[in-house]
């Protein structure tokens, strides 16, 4: 056997061992499996689940601890990690298309280190993350997505009808897209916050002063913005056929792409106008008020 053949053969053996070793099938129904991985800095964690739940919270050190609970043997859970521990993945496989939603649900409780990238995909399982900073990319058809208490994080969300709730996020880069789910933000500030929905309502509450760019856009959802008197913003609001109501004491100003029309569009500044806020709808009602 020449060197090349030997290398190939060893590679296949090593790879087979890795594959076999890292894919774990659960033995019994209604059971919980817990596994700990040491994640390389800058690594990523990915969870793919249908129904049930995915809850993420901080861990110690570089550890990722995944606890998965299933409620029937009609689902299988795979844990996979790459040899250099750059990526850890947990994935639910539903073995029978006929299984009920109770049978196919899996609850994931995941402890993660700060500063990593986390990708979660679910169908109906709610996704909740608290007190973790990092890059988040969450997607759910119908499971509520909640992000609480994070600083300097990137938050990307895709939702079909899933309600999205963000609170106490500072220095955030958020890009949220939802078709029909509502998007609620309380004390969410950072350089960039962009929310777009087709029919979901968008609510923003808090002081977004500080130089960020906030853009809330919808077709038929309502946009409600509540600002404290101290807010330093440069705001414009525009609706094609919906109403625009402003109850906040802005200094009105001219806008360079539209002429403000009472009830349809509005542009105003408060204090030094440090952050820009753009509200835009087609038929949804836009309302700005003071806290």
């Amino acid at each position: 056997m020449n060197r090349h053949h030997l290398k190939t053969a060893l590679g296949v053996v090593a790879l087979s061992a890795t594959l076999l070793g890292s894919t774990l099938a659960l033995p019994l129904p209604n059971d919980t499996r817990k596994q700990t991985f040491n994640l390389a800095p800058g690594g990523s964690v990915s969870i793919v689940n249908g129904g049930g739940s995915v809850t993420l919270h901080p861990s110690t050190g570089r550890q990722v601890v995944i606890t998965a609970t299933r409620y029937s043997d009609k689902v299988e859970i795979d844990f996979t990690n790459t040899p250099e521990a750059r990526r850890v993945e947990a994935r639910t496989h539903v073995l029978s298309a006929k299984s009920t939603s109770d049978e196919s649900r899996v609850d994931y409780d995941v402890a993660v280190p700060a500063g990593i990238s986390i990708v979660v995909n679910t169908s109906t399982a709610p996704i909740t993350i608290e007190n973790v900073d990092g890059d988040f990319s969450f997607s759910s058809d119908a499971g509520q997505i909640t992000v609480r208490n994070a600083a300097n994080s990137f938050v990307h969300v895709h939702s079909l009808t899933a309600p999205v709730s963000l609170s106490n996020l500072t220095g955030v880069h958020a890009e949220i897209m939802s078709s029909g789910g509502s998007v609620q933000m309380v004390s969410v500030t950072g350089p960039k916050v962009k929310v777009s929905t087709t029919s979901g309502d968008i609510t923003y509450q808090g002081d977004c002063s500080g130089g960020g760019a906030y853009s809330l856009v919808t077709h038929s959802g309502a946009i409600n913005v509540t600002l404290p008197e101290t807010a330093s913003v440069d705001l414009s609001a525009q609706s094609v056929s919906g109403s625009v109501i402003n109850d906040f004491p802005f200094r009105e100003r001219s806008h360079n792409t539209f002429v403000p029309t009472p009830g349809r569009s509005f542009a105003g500044t408060s204090h030094s106008g440090s952050s820009s806020v753009e509200l835009q709808s087609f038929s949804g009602r836009i309302r700005v008020k003071q806290q």
Partner: peptide, 15 residues
């Protein structure tokens, strides 16, 4: 081809 078949076989064994 080898890798894909290996994965498929593994999958089948686990079922």
């Amino acid at each position: 081809r080898d890798l894909l078949k290996l994965r498929r076989a593994e999958k089948a064994n686990r079922r």
